[in-house]
Simulated assay, not measured.
Amino acid sequence: MKGGWIYIMTNKPRGTLYVGVTSNIAKRAWEHREDVVDGFTKRYGLKRLVYMERHVEITDAIQREERLKKWPRAWKIDLIQSMNPTWDDLYDTLLT
């Protein structure tokens, strides 16, 4: 099976959070930024990719996403800050 990514989008540091899973992180982050798909991220303007985590198997990524969605907000913030303490938009790192 193809690998996958867990990612978190937001509108600003400590703002609204969205946890998602995808097999193509660059394409999916672009879709969020460009409001290509209607839904939660478009409604709340979540365009900033602040966390991503690679998994070799997509099934593992899906399981991890399901667990993260159940986490308290404070734990998600701690996870983001452990990798990205300044809440930088990681989208540009995907293009290099």
Rank of each mutant, 00 (worst) to 15 (best):
M1H: 03
M1G: 14
M1F: 03
K2M: 10
K2W: 01
G3L: 14
G4S: 11
G4F: 10
G4K: 10
G4E: 01
W5M: 12
I6M: 07
I8T: 06
I8D: 01
M9W: 03
M9E: 00
T10F: 04
N11V: 13
P13I: 14
P13L: 15
P13R: 15
P13F: 14
R14W: 01
R14H: 04
G15E: 00
G15C: 15
G15P: 08
L17K: 05
L17N: 09
V19Q: 05
V19W: 02
V21C: 14
T22L: 14
S23V: 09
S23A: 14
S23K: 11
S23P: 02
N24Y: 00
N24T: 10
I25L: 15
A26K: 10
A26P: 05
K27T: 03
A29C: 12
A29M: 12
A29S: 14
A29D: 00
E31K: 12
E31P: 03
E31N: 07
E31S: 10
H32L: 09
H32R: 05
H32K: 04
H32T: 05
R33T: 05
E34G: 10
E34Q: 11
E34Y: 07
D35A: 15
D35Y: 06
D35F: 15
V37Y: 04
V37A: 15
V37W: 01
V37G: 06
D38W: 05
D38F: 11
G39Y: 07
K42H: 02
Y44W: 07
G45I: 08
G45T: 10
K47W: 03
R48W: 01
R48M: 13
R48E: 01
L49N: 01
V50H: 06
V50R: 02
V50E: 00
V50T: 07
Y51H: 06
M52E: 00
R54T: 01
R54S: 13
H55W: 03
E57T: 06
E57P: 04
I58E: 06
T59K: 14
A61Y: 03
I62K: 11
I62P: 01
Q63Y: 07
R64S: 09
R64Q: 01
R64P: 02
E65A: 13
E66Q: 11
E66I: 12
K69E: 00
K69D: 02
K69W: 00
K70R: 07
K70S: 05
W71A: 14
W71L: 15
W71Q: 06
P72S: 10
R73I: 04
R73T: 03
A74D: 00
A74W: 03
A74G: 08
K76R: 12
K76G: 08
I77A: 14
I77Y: 08
I77V: 14
D78K: 12
D78W: 07
L79F: 11
L79E: 02
L79W: 00
I80H: 07
I80C: 13
S82E: 03
M83P: 00
N84S: 09
N84F: 11
N84T: 08
N84H: 05
N84Q: 06
P85G: 06
W87M: 06
W87P: 02
D89A: 15
D89S: 12
D89R: 09
D89Q: 09
L90G: 09
Y91R: 04
D92R: 13
T93D: 04
L94P: 09
L94C: 13
L95V: 09
L95H: 03
T96P: 15
